[in-house]
Write a protein that binds this DNA or RNA. Structure first.
Lengths: 143, 143
DNA sequence: ATTATACTTGCAACTCAGTTGATTTTGGGA
DNA sequence: TCCCAAAATCAACTGAGTTGCAAGTATAAT
């Protein structure tokens, strides 16, 4: 993913400076093959540089507001984040009940199920989140 | 919903005593027309009786483990709960981005989209959660 | 009926992801 | 070079949910 996005350019388009921490967040999310928790992102940045957690949380919040990343509420207290660039369109997620790891599934034709997911007349639906829960192949092999 | 379930009997089937707090939790969830947060359930019980929050959290956790209620992870830090009795089958949810209230949508043919929601070979999918986000009719009228 | 036992509730203290507000640092323009 | 807004930091806080243990309560055994 990261090889297909110019993060500095993307930040400039948003009117944001390409600071080291912002770039690190985008690069880490760009290289990830699954949705990451804020703490994981923080830990990964810290392998490169010293950074305060508040900085990372504020950047993630800002990116989410700008729709540069998607924040996923997959389980209780922890949010997961993934890049929302043009190369990474919305898609369903799979979360393993055992290891809690999040996989990204292939985008399905969300439009097709859109009409039947309308609520009471008057609601305006903006987007659909689909989560599949189960046991991933890794945990299945263990048990 | 509550008029269609015999909660005391249900608890007996699960080998649980029909204590006042357990019954109150089930009755409140049974009368609710939307998914409730733990704090809302707690507040509603407290209109009737004195109760410790730990008791309610433990009961909700226990009911969830027994699949008597479903715990929904719809947004960051707060879980929502709904009855999982035979009269209340799994269904998609709508959450308003403004008031954060959760509506229950009509059950759709989840089976139909099951096959296309399979992850990598080897995963075992157990259930699907669908969340629609948007603006509810009440908040739409205000703005 | 009385005791033993397991189940249930309560209380206080804790955890931990995320937030707030105030302060310091940085980096680009005048 | 100086200034100022943007960015990062720090400490302290928030609040949903958890833990461990004590106290209460119901059911079973004697």
């Amino acid at each position: 993913m990261s090889d297909r996005c110019n993060f500095s350019h993307w930040l400039a388009l948003e009117g944001l400076r390409a600071t080291p921490v912002r770039l690190a967040v985008l690069e880490i999310l760009g290289e990830a093959t699954r949705a990451l928790r804020a703490q994981e992102i923080l830990d990964l940045i810290r392998t490169r540089r010293r950074v305060n957690k508040v900085t990372v949380y504020r950047i993630l919040e800002d990116f989410t507001r700008r729709s540069m990343v998607r924040k996923l509420s997959l389980e209780g207290r922890v949010n997961h984040f993934e890049l929302a660039c043009e190369h990474h369109p919305p898609h369903p997620h799979f979360q393993c009940q055992t290891c809690r790891e999040v996989q990204c599934l292939e985008p399905v034709a969300l439009n097709r199920m859109w009409t039947e997911l309308q609520g009471p007349v008057g609601n305006r639906a903006d987007h659909i989140d689909i989560k599949v829960e189960g046991l991933c192949h890794k945990c299945r092999d263990i048990s």
